[in-house]
């Protein structure tokens, strides 16, 4: 069954969506959409490095993205540098280095389009193993830090005063986002990977009354988007990555329209 490229694509996409849902909720709650984007941009540098050192590109991506996450934490100390400026510098600086490297290093041929927009139909058995391992580690870690991370998100001082290791869970969360982006790059590509995190989460907010419900709904919506996008891609022969993002947007609009009619007066109690 895994011989079918479509089955592999679906499996890989669904696994990534499963963990992108809950992680994406935190990205939305913590207002870190631009952070996700920065991680994704730096991933291209990882691809180039991976190919240059002739290791799996996904390893190069994981290493570079994790380094970028640490670099951001370090840059946060400088009060004279606004955090969105630091993010932008890191995003475009690493993208630039990655692109220059990809084009000038002899013998290094990077299929840019497949990294920028994803190549889910080219997921192989080995990719599936990588994705499954990454998803399992990410899910387990997120489950372990869930309460602390939520507390740190709601009110950091309150959480810290009550013994939550706020700095540590924030760093772990940043690393989880970095790893997910490495895994999801193959699915929707560098330019669209943030969409996998934030669109299902934003859509889930409309129908969720608690953080935990929102995480589960976001995971479900993400998985439906992957299936729907793949279907669309087959049907009209569109590129699969953008089709998945389009499916997620359609779900968001449908939920907005569906809940807007009934929830206008009920989602605020007062």
């Amino acid at each position: 069954m895994l011989d079918d490229f479509l089955v592999r694509a679906l499996l890989g996409g669904v696994m990534v969506a499963l963990v992108a849902g809950p992680l994406g909720c935190f990205v939305v709650w913590r207002r870190m959409a631009y952070f996700g984007d920065t991680m994704a941009h730096s991933a291209l540098l990882g691809v180039s490095l991976g190919l240059l050192l002739s290791v799996q590109p996904v390893i190069g991506v994981a290493v570079v993205v994790v380094i970028a996450a640490f670099a951001l934490f370090w840059l946060e100390r400088f009060r004279w540098l606004a955090s969105d400026t630091a993010l932008g510098m890191l995003a475009h600086g690493s993208l630039a280095v990655g692109l220059v490297m990809a084009s000038t290093v002899p013998g290094l041929r990077v299929d840019l389009m497949s990294y920028l927009f994803g190549d889910i139909l080219a997921i192989g058995r080995q990719d599936l193993v990588w994705i499954a391992a990454g998803v399992a580690v990410t899910m387990l870690t997120l489950a372990l830090i869930w309460r602390d991370l939520l507390a740190a998100t709601v009110q950091a001082d309150l959480a810290k005063a009550e013994g939550v290791p706020v700095a540590r869970v924030r760093l772990i969360f940043a690393l989880l986002v970095a790893l997910l982006i490495a895994a999801a790059m193959k699915i929707v590509g560098i330019l669209l990977v943030t969409a996998m995190l934030i669109i299902p989460a934003a859509a889930a907010r409309r129908v969720s009354g608690s953080p935990e419900v929102m995480a589960v709904v976001a995971a479900l919506l993400g998985m439906v988007s992957v299936a729907g996008g793949l279907g669309l891609s087959l049907w009209i022969d569109s590129p699969s990555g953008p089709s998945i993002v389009l499916a997620a947007i359609v779900l968001f609009v449908l939920l907005l329209a569906g809940t807007g009619l009934v929830a206008g007066g009920t989602d605020r109690r007062r």
Partner: peptide
């Protein structure tokens, strides 16, 4: 609490424990 985060009072009560 930002409206982006759905949080009811009973869940807030068990935030850290």
């Amino acid at each position: 609490i930002d409206a982006v985060l759905p949080l009811r009072v009973d869940r807030l009560m068990t935030l850290t424990a």
